[in-house]
């Protein structure tokens, strides 16, 4: 099992009281498996993704990522876990504007001090169909192209699990479909686990399993 949670809870302080964002979340994801998290806006989907990926700490409960207890780790330790195990695709792409497409894709390999990050990045850019745009900066690319760069960056990490937060949310239906197809296609080649937060029913249907959140709880 690559990812599992038990009694996961997240609350934030709001004025004098505490606001519960997530409560009693229990889930399991096997290696190579894909999970879609759906739900209306404000149901806690992105917060859950952040907790699962180790970007944030739960208020209580347990998270095991690749058998590592994320809930016990501090920010520095979680960063190390993310570097070795996790890849991301965001709704707003989150590419570095001062780096070219190629350099953005090289970034995870550089952080891992891998040899020849350039050829690895070029391979994945080619794989997402952007070989000819590798020296372009993000502001010279369309939304769909930027998201393809983000996907190439995610797979260039050689991670064990990929978290995608609304990966088609900023794209038109045609580009959205292209991106979701690409995501699953490349993922199938790498045997990564995939956790996707989405409103897109078509995308959710492609996943092996789906959980739906409502007011911070898994809807029955």
């Amino acid at each position: 099992m690559i990812l599992s949670t038990k009694n996961l809870r997240k609350e934030v302080s709001s004025g004098n009281s505490n606001l519960v964002i997530l409560e009693d979340i229990n889930l399991n994801v096997e290696e190579g498996e894909s999970l879609a998290i759906t739900g209306p806006s404000g149901s806690g989907k992105s917060t859950l993704l952040g907790l699962l990926a180790g970007l944030d700490n739960p208020s209580s409960g347990y998270i095991f990522l690749n058998k590592i207890p994320l809930h016990e780790l501090n920010e520095e330790e979680r960063a190390r876990v993310r570097k070795e195990n996790v890849a991301f695709v965001f709704q707003s792409f989150e590419l570095l504007p001062s780096l070219t497409a190629l350099e953005n894709v090289m970034l995870p390999s550089e952080l891992k001090s891998k040899k020849d990050p350039e050829s690895n990045a070029k391979y994945f850019l080619d794989r997402v169909g952007l070989k000819d745009r590798q020296h372009h900066y993000p502001n010279q690319l369309s939304g769909g192209e930027q998201q393809r760069v983000a996907i190439a960056r995610a797979f260039a990490c050689s991670s064990k699990i990929l978290f995608a937060d609304e990966p088609t949310g900023n794209l038109d239906p045609k580009n959205g479909k292209l991106i979701s197809d690409l995501l699953f296609e490349v993922n199938s080649e790498s045997d990564n686990a995939l956790v996707v937060v989405t409103h897109d029913h078509d995308l959710a249907k492609k996943c092996d399993k789906t959980i739906s959140l409502k007011l911070g709880k898994v809807a029955e």
Binding site: E76, E94, L107
Partner: peptide
Amino acid sequence: SVRKHQSAILRTLGASNSL
């Protein structure tokens, strides 16, 4: 202000605070 964004992405990708 530019570094803030870059730092967030690098740390999401696993860069340590010390780096």
